[in-house]
């Protein structure tokens, strides 16, 4: 009649690397004097070897097949020498802007709305110019005046009166 071996649970843990150093030493000490454990341990080791060999052999992929399965190399989008308007999300916006400008230009051509369009463009240009100046001031980190005098309304300014150049001092 078979009885459970006191070290039977330790055998698989030993093979699977799950024993502490103390447990390992204890088991190895037992192993040196127990032929049945040595035989059983060999079976435990064989399981791992068989799985390894099988996965290796079954999962063999020929170099030609491997090459044919390689996905396309992604097209480089960032960090290139391309200008900003041609990279990433900016590109479709740039394209959209050009198309919009062409469409607007076409419909405005030869109509009496042209001056309005020109005026609108002028206003936009001014806005952009003001924003650009703002950015430049911030980015250049120029020391800003601590107390800015509040602008005086034009109506309150004294009228310009030319002073006589050669007026002698009293």
């Amino acid at each position: 009649m078979m009885t459970s071996h006191p070290f039977s649970n330790m055998r698989s843990d030993y093979v699977l690397g799950l024993l502490s150093d103390d447990e390992k030493n204890h088991f190895e000490h037992h192993l040196s004097g127990c032929p049945s454990c040595r035989a059983a341990l060999e079976k435990d080791r064989q399981v791992g070897r068989l799985v390894k060999q099988t996965v290796h052999a079954q999962g063999n992929l020929s170099p030609a097949r491997a090459r044919s399965l390689m996905p396309q190399v992604p097209v480089r989008k960032t960090g290139s020498s391309l200008p900003l308007w041609r990279t990433g999300w900016v590109q479709p916006m740039t394209l959209g802007g050009i198309i919009l400008a062409l469409v607007v230009g076409f419909f405005n051509m030869g109509t009496n709305r042209a001056p309005a369009a020109v005026a609108a463009t002028a206003t936009m240009t001014q806005t952009v110019a003001v924003q650009t100046v703002d950015v430049v001031i911030v980015e250049s980190e120029l020391p800003l005046p601590t107390a800015t005098p509040s602008p005086t309304p034009i109506a309150q300014l004294p009228a310009f009166e030319p002073q006589p150049q050669s007026a002698p001092a009293p």
Binding site: V55, Q58, G59, A66, M70
Partner: peptide, 25 residues
């Protein structure tokens, strides 16, 4: 990451076998 196509190929060749084995397993 510098956009070298050959490097992608080499990276793939270096790792393809074991990834396939894992997936197939």
């Amino acid at each position: 990451l510098q956009g070298e196509t050959l490097a992608f190929e080499q990276l793939y060749e270096r790792h393809v076998s074991y990834i396939y084995r894992l997936a197939f397993g």
